[in-house]
């Protein structure tokens, strides 16, 4: 009986606390614990992590988005709204015939599946790794084109 008690009760408990003690010693001696001290230090995001959308530009500064609405069609949550307009030679926004006059994503509907990125023929919309999206008001979550568009890179 005492052997069974040791095997089934005491040994697993000791093994569990052994891990705790090991981590404690590691924390104290080496100064590296398991906890990521989040606001001060960030954990490394995985390579294919999908978070906040960005509308990218070509190196020339022209927008990649041509307003084709394929992203809106691929979106399973129906959270993307695209309104296209014709490019003119005087006011050229994208290299194609059309550009997105309005581009809105409802971040609360979005499930960050990345289908918009897959559907995009020009690679305009990409999902980057900025995960700090929480906010107070519902209205703040409709991201307009101005908020999504990458700033022009100064050469």
């Amino acid at each position: 009986m005492p052997f069974e008690v040791f095997r089934d009760v005491a040994k697993p408990i000791l093994a569990g606390f052994g891990i705790t003690a090991k981590r404690l010693v590691q924390q104290v001696t080496e100064g590296k614990g398991v906890t990521v001290q989040y606001p001060e230090e960030r954990r490394e995001q995985f390579g294919r992590t999908r978070w906040r959308h960005v509308l990218t530009r070509y190196d020339s500064g022209l927008e990649k988005c041509i307003g084709c609405s394929l992203c809106a069609g691929a979106c399973p949550a129906k959270c993307i709204y695209v309104e296209a307009a014709e490019n003119t030679d005087e006011d050229r926004k994208s290299p194609g015939e059309r550009y997105a006059a309005r581009y809105e994503i409802n971040m609360l509907r979005c499930i960050f599946c990345g289908y918009c990125q897959e559907a995009c023929p020009t690679g305009a919309i990409v999902l980057r790794k900025d995960f700090e999206l929480a906010n107070y008001e519902r209205e703040d979550f409709v991201y307009t084109k101005e908020m999504l568009l990458e700033p022009v890179r100064s050469l």
Binding site: Y38, L133, A134, N135, R138
Partner: peptide, 15 residues
């Protein structure tokens, strides 16, 4: 507070 994400990662919830 609303947290977007499907699901939000633990650090997004901490934020």
């Amino acid at each position: 507070v609303y947290v977007p994400g499907c699901p939000p990662s633990p650090d997004a919830l901490i934020y």
